[in-house]
Write a protein that binds this DNA or RNA. Structure first.
Lengths: 376, 376
DNA sequence: TTGAAAGCGCTAACAT
DNA sequence: ATGTTAGCGCTTTCAA
C-alpha cells in the first residue's frame, strides 16, 4: 500500500536515484525528467519517507520539545513560537509532556533521541549532571535552567523578582511572603535569591512559604498559611499560583489588594482577565521559544550526527555552541497590588503590626541568599 | 559517536543478529550470551535505533496527536490521558499544534505519517473528505468530530447543550443566547442543533451569536452584543468563552448571575476558581484521550503497514475498526446561573422539565455503536 | 542457539 | 544528466 521511491521510478521510467534527486537536489536533474517524475509521484501519492531518509543523512528535520506540564498556560506560547520558528526552517516539532516527573524526562529524551535532530528541554526537573550526560546522546538546548557547558535560554526572573519586591516595598510593604515553586526549579532558586537580596536592601522581611505545586490549587491551598503569617504582600512563583492564592484568600474573606497585595510571574493571558487584574512579572516566552530553536538549529548544523563521511573524524570540528542567553523580564503593574501598612501618604490604617515572629516557614526553609552562585 | 548494534556485537564477540535478538526476542538467545550482550550494551550506552527498527518492522511505536490549540485548557487533560494510556502499551506520543489552521493540520498528518503508527486528530478543522483521504495514508482516529467510515470518539455535547438549556428554562429564562464557536467545529454544529430543539421545546427563544474565537478574548469581545441583545441567559461554546464573557459583562456593569446567567462547556480546572464559579457542561476529556488511544492501537494491530511478508496480500485482512464511541457529558451547576425573569416565585422547582434524559451510564462510560454512522 | 545474508526506503559517492 | 553501487541500523528468514 505505501508507495515507495521504486514505484515512482518504475512509473516514470527512470532509476530510483533520479527520483531521489528530483526531491533532494532538483537542480541536478533535467527539467523535463523532473516534471515527469513529479507528475508520477503526485499521481501515485508518493511522499518521501523521512525516517528512511534520516537514516542516511543523519538529519530527521524534527526537533523534540520536552515540557514539564502542558497544562501550565506558561508553556503554550513558548511551544507555538518554537513551532512557528521551526516551520520556517523546515523543521517539525514533537512535543512531549512529562508531568513534572524527572524520570519521564529522561526516558523521553532517550525515546526522542534518534527521531529528532535535537531536543529543547523546558524547565527540566532532573539533575544538572543527568542533563549533561544526556546531552552526549542528542543535542540539547535547555530553557529555564542554567547548565554550565550547555546552551541555555534563561529569563531574568531574578531581575523580575527584584522589581516586584521593590515595587512592593515602594508601596509600603515591609513584611512579604515568597510562595516557592518546585524545589528542583532553577527559576525558583533564582527568584528566592533575588527576592531575599531585594527585601534585605529595602528593609523588608521576607518569608518563604513552600515548595508549592505551581498551579491554582497550589496557590489556593497555601492561602490559610499566608493569612496566618500576617504578611501584607506576596510574590508567587507564577501566575497560576497567584490566581489560586487570590481565590483562596477571597474564600477566607481576605481582600486583594486592600489587605494583601499579590504579584505573580509569567503574565499569562488569564492574568489580564481575573479580578483584580494581576500585577505580574512578564516573561518573554515567545522569544524564549524562538531563541531556543535558533540555538539548537545553529548547533545542529555543525554536527550532522551519523552522516556518511564521518568515518574518521567524527568528534572533530564538533564545536558546540554553549552560549547562554538571558532574556529580559518586565514588571506589569495592574490591580492586585496596592498600598501597604507603611505607605507614605498618611493612611488611617497604620495598624501597628509590629515585628511579628512569623510562623516557621512551612515545609520550606527560610530565606537563603547566596552570592552570584551558579553552582548547583 | 552514536553506538550501534555492530559495536555491541564486536564488544561481546557475537554476530549482530544475536544482539538484535537479545533486544527483540530475548527468549531465543542463550541466557549466558544474553547477559554478556546486555552487559556490553549497558557498558557502551547502546540504545536500539527505533527509527531503523521501524523501517523493517513497520511499527514505530509512536503515535501522533494533532491538536487544534494547545493553549486551550480543554486539551491538556486529553493529551495527558492519551500519553499515559500510550505509555502503558509501550507507545510514545508526539503532540503537534495547528493553531486552528486546517492547512497546518494536513501538512502535519503528512509529516507524521511515516514516523508514527497512527494519528489522533483532535477537533480537526479540515473537511471530512480530506480527513477520509488522509486516513488512507495513516491510521486515523478522530476526536470531537463525526466522520463516517472512520473511528471517532465523540462527546455528547448535544445532550449537554440540552441539559444546559433545560436548566436555564427551569430557572425561568425565556430569552437565551448561544455563543457559537468556530464554524467548522462539529461540536459547534451539534450544540446549535440540540440547543435550538431544547429551546423550542421549552418555549424559549434562542439567539445565536457568532462565530467567535473559542477563547477568553472571543468571549469578552462579544459581551457588548450580548448585553444589547437583551437575553437573560447565555450558553457559551466553551468555558474559556464563558469566562471571557463574564469578565466582559462585568466590565459593562452587568452582574452574573443576577442579571445574566452564563453556562460554559468543558469544565476546565479554571471554571471552579473564577467568581462566580462557572456552571458548565463537563466533558470527559480524559476518557476521550484514553479511548482514542485504545481504538487506534486496536486498529493498528490489524494492519502492520509495510511489514516484511506483505508482498502479496497487503490489502488483505485490513479490517478497519469504524466504531464510533459517544461519551456522556454532565451538567455541573455552580454559581454563574440563577433565576431568570420568569422564575416561579417562592418555589422555583416543580418546573415541567419533562422526563429527565440522563443516561444511566455515568460520565466517561463509552457507549459503542458500530459501523454505519449518522451523517452529520 | 547462533551466523549468514537479504533487504526496509532512501541517499550519496562514483561512473558513465 | 543519469545509472550503479554501497550502505544507514536494524530485523528476519534460512541454514548450520
Amino acid at each position: 500500500m505505501p508507495v515507495t521511491i521504486r514505484d515512482v521510478a518504475r512509473a516514470s521510467g527512470v532509476h530510483i536515484s533520479t527520483v531521489s534527486r528530483t526531491f533532494s537536489a532538483p537542480h541536478l536533474v533535467n527539467p523535463e525528467t523532473r516534471v515527469r517524475v513529479l507528475a508520477c509521484a503526485e499521481d501515485l501519492g508518493y511522499r518521501p519517507n523521512r525516517a528512511a531518509r534520516a537514516l542516511i543523512t543523519g538529519r530527521t528535520h524534527n526537533i523534540g520539545l520536552i515540557i514539564a506540564d502542558i497544562a501550565n498556560p506558561f508553556f503554550p506560547p513558548l511551544i507555538k513560537a518554537a513551532e512557528s520558528q521551526a516551520r520556517h526552517r523546515d523543521y517539525h516539532v514533537f512535543v512531549a509532556d512529562t508531568n513534572e516527573d524527572p524520570t519521564a524526562e529522561e526516558e523521553l529524551v532517550h525515546a526522542l533521541a534518534k527521531q529528532v535532530d535535537g531536543v529543547l528541554l523546558c524547565s527540566p526537573r532532573m539533575s544538572n549532571s543527568l542533563i549533561e550526560q544526556l546531552s552526549r546522546e542528542v543535542p540539547l538546548v535547555v530553557v529555564n535552567r542554567q547548565v554550565t557547558g550547555l546552551p541555555c535560554v534563561l529569563m531574568d526572573v531574578g531581575q523580575g523578582a527584584r522589581s516586584a519586591i521593590e515595587h512592593l516595598v515602594g508601596l509600603g510593604h515591609r513584611s512579604i511572603a515568597l510562595l516557592g515553586g518546585p524545589r528542583s526549579s532553577w527559576t525558583n532558586r533564582e527568584m528566592r535569591r533575588a527576592a531575599s537580596a531585594a527585601a534585605r536592601a529595602g528593609g523588608a522581611e521576607l518569608t518563604v512559604l513552600g515548595p508549592n505545586a505551581p498551579t491554582e490549587v497550589g496557590g489556593s491551598a497555601i492561602a490559610e498559611q499566608v493569612r496566618r503569617s500576617g504578611v501584607s504582600a506576596v510574590l508567587a512563583y507564577n501566575d497560576l499560583m497567584a490566581i489560586g492564592l487570590i481565590e483562596g484568600l477571597d474564600a477566607l474573606g481576605v481582600r486583594v489588594p486592600q489587605e494583601v497585595s499579590v504579584v505573580g510571574v509569567d503574565d499569562i493571558t488569564l492574568s489580564r482577565l481575573t479580578r483584580p487584574k494581576l500585577t505580574t512579572v512578564a516573561t518573554p516566552t515567545g522569544a524564549a521559544g524562538r531563541t531556543a530553536v535558533d540555538m539548537l538549529l545553529q548547533q545542529d548544523i555543525e554536527s550532522p550526527r551519523g552522516a556518511r563521511g564521518s568515518g574518521a573524524g567524527t568528534a572533530l570540528g564538533v564545536r558546540r555552541t554553549t552560549a547562554q542567553v538571558m532574556l529580559q523580564t518586565d514588571l506589569v503593574i495592574r490591580d492586585s497590588t496596592g498600598p501597604g501598612p507603611y505607605a507614605r501618604p498618611a493612611r488611617p490604617l497604620a495598624a501597628p503590626r509590629g515585628p511579628d515572629p512569623h510562623c516557621p516557614a512551612g515545609p520550606g526553609t527560610p530565606t537563603t541568599a547566596t552570592g552570584d552562585a551558579v553552582a548547583s
